[in-house]
Amino acid sequence: AAGIGLLVGMNCPKAVKPRDVITGISGRSQILFLVTYVARYLDLLTNFVSVYNTAMKVFFIAASAATVYLMLFKFKATYDHNHDTLRVEFLIAPCALLALVVNHDFTPLEILWTFSIYLESVAILPQLFMVSKTGEAETITSHYLFALGSYRALYILNWIYRYYFDNFFDLIAIVAGVVQTVLYCDFFYLYITKVLKGKKIVLPA
């Protein structure tokens, strides 16, 4: 929530003058996150888990939709097309196929949920690709990525807790969550060793 809120905040027209909108954010990753949250939270109206759960689902969908709108429409001029080039079809197709093959239940909602779990684990790739292409990440982008990466990393602790105390585990969510966290690891390394020391992340050219 902090990471997504940061992104909306930094892209919000009231908060910053248009030219200050942070560059270096991958619109493609933001679209993948929007698809992820919509596909996963379709049960928003049918399954009530808790006020917190529903509130966060609404927030995730609304904030990522707002980010996509602000980035690709309102501030289209500052969107960096040249560096945001990772082909998302190569991420979406395998996740869709895998969701059809490996799932808990062959029903539309469950397959969409599974697709969303797989997609989330690779949704950050366009962003990491863009950072490697631009060779650097703005500090605010680094904070956003750190928050986003630690979100799923913390879930791993929760899954361990639930395994030992509730004797419950969801292998699909766990495997995808571990893959997703691993994808952030090299970024976490850069974040800890550089950004937290006040330096900017500049990748070797």
Binding site: R40, D43, N47, V49, N53, M56, K57, F60, H104, D105, W113, Y155, N158, D166, N167, F168, D170, A173
Partner: peptide
């Protein structure tokens, strides 16, 4: 425990 009826995580 059995099969999970619906997903209670984000």
């Amino acid at each position: 425990e059995g099969e999970q009826l619906f997903h209670d995580e984000l």
